[in-house]
Design a protein around this nucleic acid. Sequence first.
DNA 1: GATGAATGAGTGTTCATTCAT
DNA 2: CATGAATGAACACTCATTCAT
Lengths: 198, 198, 198, 198
Amino acid sequence: MTPLNDEQLHQIRDERREQIKAAAAQVFARKGILCAKMSMIAETAGISSGLLYHYFKSKDELFMSLVQEALDGSVAAVRGVYELPGTPIEKIRAMTEVILDESGAPYFLLVHQARTSDGVPEPVKRLLLQYSMDHYIELLLPLFEAGQRAGEIVAGDSRELISSYLSVLSGIMVVSSYGMKDYCIPKVDRLLRVISSH
Amino acid sequence: MTPLNDEQLHQIRDERREQIKAAAAQVFARKGILCAKMSMIAETAGISSGLLYHYFKSKDELFMSLVQEALDGSVAAVRGVYELPGTPIEKIRAMTEVILDESGAPYFLLVHQARTSDGVPEPVKRLLLQYSMDHYIELLLPLFEAGQRAGEIVAGDSRELISSYLSVLSGIMVVSSYGMKDYCIPKVDRLLRVISSH
Amino acid sequence: MTPLNDEQLHQIRDERREQIKAAAAQVFARKGILCAKMSMIAETAGISSGLLYHYFKSKDELFMSLVQEALDGSVAAVRGVYELPGTPIEKIRAMTEVILDESGAPYFLLVHQARTSDGVPEPVKRLLLQYSMDHYIELLLPLFEAGQRAGEIVAGDSRELISSYLSVLSGIMVVSSYGMKDYCIPKVDRLLRVISSH
Amino acid sequence: MTPLNDEQLHQIRDERREQIKAAAAQVFARKGILCAKMSMIAETAGISSGLLYHYFKSKDELFMSLVQEALDGSVAAVRGVYELPGTPIEKIRAMTEVILDESGAPYFLLVHQARTSDGVPEPVKRLLLQYSMDHYIELLLPLFEAGQRAGEIVAGDSRELISSYLSVLSGIMVVSSYGMKDYCIPKVDRLLRVISSH
DNA sequence: GATGAATGAGTGTTCATTCAT
DNA sequence: CATGAATGAACACTCATTCAT
């Protein structure tokens, strides 16, 4: 009796969800929650605005699901640094390249928007508290300390060093995420000078 | 009962305009054009929203006049770097400190918003074309080249160097402009490592 | 694999229609036309919302078919009062009990909704004109007049008496139809006092 | 400097609020919260829909303020019964006349809608708990008991008697509140028969 | 026959802007 | 000059209805 079997239906739903999430990530990243229009997300995704609500209960829920995913991904990416080959500074260089690789830009901006915009729903705020910058600093601490011991990274307060480096990277990501020619993404080697002992 | 004379009226008018612009700069910087509400600007300025329209024809005009001012100011500030005492790198260090000094943050953010937000009125876009990053690069070129000749600044493509440095500074300004504990403003010395030859 | 024959199809169709009408009566009675959602009717009936439209062209048509049925049933019920055993007042008492018996409540409410809601489609309005309160008064007139002649019912304008009694009954049905503890259904004897001569 | 003085402003605001409340009472009473459209209230009040929101934060708040007022008024009216002249049954007759007087109908319906509709905001539900039917029964208890002692009111469970009478009255109000010729408001004497000992 | 994905018109609400005072 | 009441266009979200499968 069922005209489309469960598997087909499931596949359609999944595809649509991904299609919507991709469109939404782009729009939210650029505009922030308040300024992002659902109609614009729908248009970007190539669907009617009504259909958006078959897949996500509300703008807030859609935003939250994206932020959740971005945060999970970013933690995984940072954790993954330990699997990379090479000395500490080489690992950091590889991680930096991954971060600056523009494919992750929308997600970076998304989290930035979530951290800095008004109108962020309360559940997202709670989520962000769990993924504060300190969280990332702790994740990277062993790596930087190893680098310092190896003489590859300048001596000094490691947490402050990591915080500075991440702020620089975040800043670059944010300003360069708009596809504007005004800002450029510096070469990785230049950025590494901030922390390397040369 | 005595009607105010022209001069007094003019003075009131000027004071009000400044009062409004200060409030608007703050609100626009934090929210972007689209999300900044005229009512919020009025409230911040301590006046009625209706009065806003006696002084500025529209939100767009108000925004544009602020961007104009911020751009003029930033050019003046960058030009001023040549008046600062010391060697090239010392001048750059001083300029960096001024930029990162939070007092200039609202204007910086304002220009950033103007460059990256949607909904920016066409005249503002034209304005920004005249003040592209290249414009600042040209202004700073003699200084950086002098620094390179003096051996204070790493050798290499000076334009690319300046562009990278400005992007890093801009990024830091943007991410740290929200008073969030997540991002930190690195020490100036750390940032200078990006360009200095040590 | 063997396709169902016409008779079986017809039977399925009829069963479905009844299933839908039962669900719809319940939902319309509680919410009114405008607030009743087709999705809610579908869910109550245990079918997909799309299927609703195989059986009823539109919400309005579904509503109208229910109202038609409820009106026909109510006329039949009132006509049936003459078949009941006993004296006029005993017949009326029996009828009152049937009316207040909650099993008929959904249909009663349905007609009430049809009479009082906005958004009632024009054809339904025309239908209701044919089944005005006067129609019921005429049906009951012989019974009440017999009661008056028998001294069981208070003397006076019989039409006004019937109208008052029906209004009281309708009112009770409506306010008590929500399963709320705030309103109670009075004992039949109490209500009969309105018309009985004691 | 202030162009309209506070008093004038206050007066305009009060007038508008009353104008809106009158329109809203009418629309809410007829349609219930969910089906009442703010645009319709605005139209009924003769103002733009935007202006509604200068005076009431939301549909819910508007609804609640009306329900609050209606409940306060109804309690005051019932309490006022003790100030009326005459014997207990005469007081009740007077009170009944006041209730059935159509001027209060919209408020009656409003409370009815609040008690029975879906979509009633939580604060209103809490309000209604405080003004349950039991509340009114307690208010009227001394009066009915006095009537019973005086032999004017039939003996029996007074609370049940009051509850029945109020249900009958409420029902009449509700069904007759739509300005429909189908239902009539019975004469007060007829309704009093429900409780009087004759 | 049966499903549920898809659409689009309509509703509650916000906000830039105007205007009477 | 100054106010805030008033408007209307725009946006988030809902729901009757259609249609491919």
